[in-house]
Amino acid sequence: MTNRKTLSVRLIITFALVAIAVVDVYPIVYMAVNSSRTAVDFFQRPGGLPSPWNFDNFKALYYRFDVLRLFGNTLIGSAAAFALAMALSVPAAFAFAKIRFPLRQSLYMTVIATMTIPGITFVVPNFLLFSRLGLVDRLVSVIVLWAITSVPSNIFLLAAIMRGIPNELLEAGKVDGIGYVRTLLRLVVPLSAPGMLTLAIFNATGWWNDLFTPLIFLQSDELKTMTVAVATILKRFDTDYPLLLAGLFMTSIPPIAIYVALQKYMKKGLVIGSVK
């Protein structure tokens, strides 16, 4: 279907693609540019460029809103949640992919079916349970919820990856007499590492962008994740557009950076399941 178009058709296509790109990119440029000006400057000339460029909003985010701490909360939360999610998912995925036992298929279907349960439908009992345990308003509540609710989809994708591990390799391990734990740690995990990187990217960006769980379980300002802080703390200043835009811009940087750096792995992950 390619390479046989006339020049004019190719020009029209390019024009359409550019038009869409403008609609996609303009809001992001708007956010970046207007975060670097004062509120007064913004309201005097909202369409134009800042004059002068002014980075006080980022200083305010740093000094008044302790943005590094908010970043840190999300990072620690995501890292711990991913470690916990993998600790639970890797053995289960391995069992579904490579170990034979009765009821394997029905247990697997149970896990898959769990993916369809919307998170909001079971949040109230969890909230009451966690508050009885004294875990509400502690980062650990978010870590546990992030990790465990991601287990079904992680098992699903890890099992798909692990089915590709050659049985001969596992047999050879058995002949060498290495035990279950070492089989997992020395063979299965290293062989699934590229897939696990994709999972890490998807889980981490999902958690970075998540509003619901941290909004409900974290209440103190200093414990919030970046996304929740923008939606709650900064929103109190919602007449100061440039300050809010600076917050939004900083919240967007990590996902965009991850995407730019690790595009290859993201594409692979996004397409899993959509095409045969």
Binding site: P91, A92, F94, A95, I117, N126, I148, V151
Partner: peptide, 21 residues
């Protein structure tokens, strides 16, 4: 071995998803 591999994941899902549901 299979069942024991599944146990942690199912206990966790039981506590945080199935029971609250």
């Amino acid at each position: 071995t299979g069942y024991l591999s599944l146990l942690p994941a199912f206990l966790a899902l039981g506590a945080i998803v199935f029971y609250p549901m």
